[in-house]
Amino acid sequence: MSSTLLPEEQALDSHKATRSRDSKRYGFFPGCVAKESCKELFNSTMLLAEKLGIELIELTAASCCGASVVNDVNRDVARVLNARTYAQAEALGLDDVITICSTCTGHMRAANKELLENEEQMDQANAILGKFGAKYAGTVTVRHLLWLLIDDIGLDNLRAMVVRPLNGLKVAPFYGCHIIRPESVNGWESARNPHSLEDIIEAIGGEAIDYAGKTRCCGFHIQLEKDNVATDMVGQNMRMAKDHGAEAVLTPCPLCHLALDGYQQDSAARWGRTDLPTFHLPQLVGYALGIPADLLGLQKHLIDPRTIMVERELIS
């Protein structure tokens, strides 16, 4: 095992542990997709953090959360992988781990809930972590950036920071299943009638569209399973959004983003053209807070969001 310090270990004095919320220093778990095909999400998150005056300390040695898939192979492995991640945060004196993906949020919270509520599972995890000198004491909370924006920054403060309001751009919120369901795991807001994304959209000067698709599934996890099923789920939801007047979609989940941005074109055959550009949460908030559009990686999307932004005179 290497004894070289990780970047976050070099930057932080782990003996000065304080609550993340007070110090505005958070453990940051970007997840796999934000480091691979949605790098624009990672970049825009870091730019937004700087704007907000918070420090996101990336846990660079953290593993995948299990992606809701490894549970299909083994009932314990995702829990222990996540315990390892929490142990890394604790070692740095960080009690908050911030995610930017709905699936990471749900599965990391589920693992943490099991660890904290079940002594046997905590012991099992620590027995394995002990093999490489790590230990999880159970002090970590997993939260999504969306919740941080509302709880720690606050909607009023956010509103006050807006320099480029969205001029009433009609935005359809798309939550992604695992940030709301199951409610026993997430429970930050009502799973059946959430409104955090709507609150954010309105705080930055947009108009939130209400439609039944907002809490439905994007089909990401079965994109490869059977032809057309996941594509139809994208088409069905985007049709609903479009029919309710949406001009764009906002999602806190890069998996939803890949599905909605990537498969809308293919869903047109059955559901008609919808062509709704999809923003990652920190992109749209970042834009409103004055981060230049090109730095937010909007040009990386398959359905170019800049078209509607030019039309609505948000960018030239």
């Binding site: 796999c32 997709v33 480091k35 691979e36 095909s37 040695a61 953290a62 593993s63 995948c64 299990g66 992606a67 898939v69 490894v70 299909d72 192979v73 083994n74 492995v77 992988l81 490869l224 399973e225 059977k226």
Partner: peptide, 28 residues
């Protein structure tokens, strides 16, 4: 595809710590 997907995801995590997207698509 289902079992292959679950096993390829698990394998890439074991090997790299991450879910390796392209390999998962091809493996599935």
């Amino acid at each position: 595809r289902g079992p292959r997907h679950a096993l390829t995801v698990s394998k890439t995590i074991k090997q790299t710590g991450m879910l390796a997207e392209t390999e998962v698509v091809l493996g599935t």
